[in-house]
Write a protein that binds this DNA or RNA. Structure first.
Lengths: 159, 159
DNA sequence: AACCTAGCTTTAATTTTAGAAGTCAGTCAA
DNA sequence: TTGACTGACTTCTAAAATTAAAGCTAGGTT
């Protein structure tokens, strides 16, 4: 199976992984959330090759995650900005950051977060909207849809 | 810059991306959270090649994300389980799932979540622990540590 | 006139990955 | 007690992705 096949699976984790599940795309998203918008700044801040950056930006633009817009006609100059779809990836990047801070960090937290609403420097966490309590792997259970369940059963049956 | 360089950056998003930022690793994590533990089941459920799976599992084991344990001495059989470090990736996978559901899905949600604490079928969300309000890209602001700020300044200065 | 900048694209070499096939230890069934 | 089978891999080779370096375009600056 090529990686293209992932994007046609029922599972939306697979689809999301096919689109944004690679380290350079994650680096680009980090930069976007830190306020970077220009090609050369992405290059400098991520250290990736221009070829790769160009390809990734195209992929993200095609998917609707980023939008390319001219900020100068003469000379022609472009910048990249997250669309609403792109901004919705914030929890993904923040979750990665928090995991990295906790398990891969040096004690210092390179990126702190200020909640504009209340002004606090804070680390958001996953909570259950029903009861308001924090939620994690231990107190949750996955429930598969019929379609996804069937797909998995079929895969399991190849004897 | 090779990808190895990402894992030595100050930024913990970069470090996390270097370790779990690839689509197959994300598929493995999804399977772990769905209760898969055995080599061949990972193969069948993800569709990846055995070579890749073997390499990824080794990388994850070396990093401490999964633990390999014999569940049978004779014949020797092994299974893979998430460590605490691995289980801590739950918010990352769930965030991806939610984003996929919202932006890449068919309307149906392949994986539903039950909060064991209150029994509700729910979609957890990021909230600020200080004020309890939901938090997203719009109402947050990044604040860089001195070290990370300096690293970025240096990168920006290559004229 | 000569050089600079931003935003790329092209090319060639290198590295990584995919897929198929093979290995190995042990079990089971005849 | 041979022969097929299972789980968990490893090896091999072709195909694909990535890198570094250079080049290009459309202007701007000294």
């Amino acid at each position: 199976m090529g990686r293209a096949a992932l994007s046609t699976q029922i599972c939306t984790v697979a689809r999301a992984a096919a689109l944004v599940g690679d380290e350079w795309t994650i680096m680009i998203l980090r930069e976007m959330f830190l306020g970077t918008h220009r090609f050369d700044d992405f290059l400098r801040q991520t250290g990736m090759s221009s070829h790769l950056l160009s390809q990734r930006l195209k992929k993200l633009e095609t998917a609707g995650v980023v939008r390319r817009a001219a900020y100068s006609q003469r000379p022609p100059r472009y910048e990249y900005r997250l669309t609403e779809m792109g901004r919705a990836l914030w929890p993904v990047v923040i979750s990665l950051k928090q995991w990295g801070d906790r398990w891969l960090g040096d004690g210092e937290t390179p990126i702190g977060l200020v909640h504009k609403g209340c002004g606090a420097v804070t680390e958001p966490r996953m909570t259950c909207p029903e009861c308001g309590e924090p939620m994690d792997a231990h107190d949750s259970e996955a429930r598969l849809s019929q379609g996804f369940y069937d797909e998995r059963q079929r895969a399991g049956k190849q004897t």
